[in-house]
Amino acid sequence: MKKSLLAVAAIGAFASAAQAQSSVTVYGIMDVGFQGVTTRNGSTKTNVTRFSGEGSETTSRLGFRGTEDLGGGMSAFFTAEFALNSTNATLSGDANNGLFNRQSFVGLKKNGIGQAAIGTQYTPIHLAVGRTDPGQQNNMLGNVIYATSAAQGSGQTTASYTVRYNNALTLATDRMAGFVVSAIYNNNNSDTNQTATGGGSANNNAWGAGVNYVWNKLNVDAAIQNSSSSNWAAQQTTGPALPATQTVGLAPSNPLGAAVQMSQQYYGATYDFGILKAYAGYVSNKVQAQASNAQLERTAQQIGVRSFVTPKVEAWASAGTGRYTAQNLSALSSATAASASQNFTGYQLGSNYWLSKRTNMYAIFGSTQVSSSSIAVSEGGSSYGVGVRHTF
């Protein structure tokens, strides 16, 4: 009898240990195709055509994620995700010939309460845009909310928000009465923007918060982010600014100095009408010089639709407007106007032909135009991409 009880106990212990083993999933996206990009900056016009492995529709990536059941409704989880570029000898184009870290974090989750994680993670605004962008954050010109990658041409990549923070703590509740509340805190490290692998600001302290609400076919998002940096990156494309290459009397790299305060906010919504899904979004990004009252701001609003025309053909369209404003720049240079502004517009058309649930062919076209100002000439650009995307 005792031997039987011991055998049962041993089997139970083994089953519990086996149940507690972690499960790991390998996932990724490979998006390759052909791109054409035309940009205009004042009287300078540039045309580029290329085979691209950066992904016109989605940035290629390789990831690993896993969970482990800790018992009592607790679980541990991790994600490690890296950028890929199939046409680049270093896979991601990182300066150190390694993989660019898109996100890597580990955390704990309690069912019915929420989760916490530490590592390199997406910001609340980036997650909110992902749920409310008709173009699903593709890499072509024409989207005024999600700025394109640097590969789309000089002067066309001014960022509208920060995509990820390194050295970040995130908190998120489980969905309750339709609501999920999230927060992020970044302490004394660098944040990275999607416009360049080295973009963003260093020696940075930042925080953010977001709210997502879902009711039937309605989705609503609101998110804010604030950061303070004592070593802002020199790249003008990391902030909301008039084109640096056209600024008179200012250093072309960074007109606000090293120490800046950055405030960002986003509001978006979607509604599924059945035959199509409607999208709307608004973003604001303001950078304030801490040594003076000089500031640069970018605001934009966009609407769009997305729908399956046939069971295999999916199409989307978006259009938006925005404005760059610069105030009190004369505090930085007497040769510069005190204020200036530029208006911009953008639109995008795209389609997918689904060969299977994981593989599709796509075609995307986008265009953007920016007016001139007292310190910057007009500019514009258009790009198209055709290719094949496979998820695994």
Score class of each variant (00 low, 15 high):
residue 93 G to C: 02
residue 194 Q to A: 12
residue 269 A to S: 07
residue 237 T to E: 11
residue 213 Y to M: 09
residue 220 V to H: 00
residue 225 Q to T: 14
residue 319 A to R: 00
residue 98 G to H: 09
residue 297 E to P: 04
residue 264 Q to E: 15
residue 315 A to N: 07
residue 55 G to F: 05
residue 82 F to Y: 14
residue 292 S to I: 04
residue 368 T to C: 01
residue 386 V to M: 10
residue 283 V to F: 07
residue 96 N to W: 14
residue 46 T to S: 10
residue 118 I to S: 05
residue 63 G to C: 11
residue 159 A to N: 04
residue 374 S to K: 08
residue 238 T to K: 00
residue 301 Q to K: 14
residue 65 R to Q: 15
residue 273 F to Y: 14
residue 72 G to L: 06
residue 20 A to C: 06
residue 116 A to L: 11
residue 274 G to F: 03
residue 243 P to A: 06
residue 380 G to P: 00
residue 324 Y to P: 02
residue 93 G to M: 01
residue 173 T to C: 12
residue 180 V to G: 03
residue 158 T to M: 04
residue 244 A to T: 13
residue 234 A to Q: 07
residue 230 S to G: 13
residue 54 E to R: 10
residue 242 L to G: 02
residue 68 E to D: 03
residue 273 F to N: 10
residue 343 N to M: 09
residue 160 S to T: 15
residue 16 S to N: 14
residue 339 S to H: 09
residue 5 L to C: 06
residue 222 A to G: 08
residue 60 S to F: 06
residue 265 Q to E: 09
residue 129 V to E: 10
residue 252 P to W: 04
residue 181 V to K: 06
residue 331 A to D: 10
residue 320 G to K: 04
residue 15 A to Q: 14
residue 296 L to W: 10
residue 344 F to K: 02
residue 202 A to C: 02
residue 317 A to W: 07
residue 91 L to Y: 11
residue 335 A to F: 09
residue 83 A to C: 09
residue 79 T to D: 12
residue 279 Y to A: 04
